[in-house]
């Protein structure tokens, strides 16, 4: 894959705030506009640094409309991380998130899953009630080995942290030249491991 070193895909039902999440992270902007459906998928890239290295994260913001479900594999294929979004105040969006996770597990075993509860500000200012308790989601995400994070694209809370976490957790792409040194280190490690045992 060209264009980015690292592919992240945003999944979730329509209107949970995938586009807003991407916009907040990439452009640090938020528009409290009425919901506009994403058509197909939008791509944006952002340079991130992690563990002393600089690389480009390519983010796919997919359309949540049901008619694109059939095409979604096109967008999440080979993704290193998936941010599965649901609206903290809408129960059905969480149910749908679970289905996305099952689908991802079936098709992209190596894709790390980040479960993201969106619109935290709406819960905090009391406009809407929380639909699923924090503990329940946390328990669920632990069970599937996913990271759970709650964000607000409006206030920006935890948005950068989420993507930084993704960057920090990812396998760094094997940049040419560095590849060997990484391998060497790895093999050294395993040697010490072996000798220790």
């Amino acid at each position: 894959m060209s264009g980015a070193d690292f592919k992240v895909v945003l999944l979730g039902t329509e209107a949970v705030g995938k586009t807003s999440l991407m916009k907040r992270y990439v452009q640090d902007r938020f528009h409290p506009r009425p919901h506009i459906n994403t058509i197909g998928a939008a791509f944006a890239s952002k340079s991130v640094s992690s563990r002393g290295r600089q690389f480009v994260m390519g983010i796919w913001d997919t359309a949540g409309s049901e008619r694109y479900y059939a095409m979604s594999q096109l967008y999440y294929r080979d993704a290193k991380a998936a941010v599965v979004c649901f609206d903290l105040s809408e129960r059905v969006t969480f149910d749908r998130a679970k289905q996305w996770i099952i689908e991802l597990r079936n098709h992209e075993e190596d894709c790390k899953i980040y479960l993201c509860g969106t619109k935290k500000d709406v819960i905090e200012d009391g406009t809407k009630a929380r639909a699923i308790s924090h503990e329940k989601v946390l328990q669920f995400s632990k069970g599937i080995g996913a990271v759970y994070i709650e964000t607000s694209s409006k206030t920006g809370e935890s948005v950068v942290e989420l993507f930084q976490l993704i960057a920090d957790n990812c396998e760094l792409p094997s940049a040419k030249g560095k590849e060997e040194s990484v391998k060497l280190q790895l093999s050294k490690k395993s040697e010490t491991c072996c000798s220790a045992s």
Partner: peptide, 17 residues
């Protein structure tokens, strides 16, 4: 019609069927 009715194309590069 797709272009004229889709504000979202203005925000980012899109890839759509």
């Amino acid at each position: 019609n797709l272009v004229n009715s889709s504000e979202s194309f203005k925000a980012a590069e899109s890839w759509t069927p």
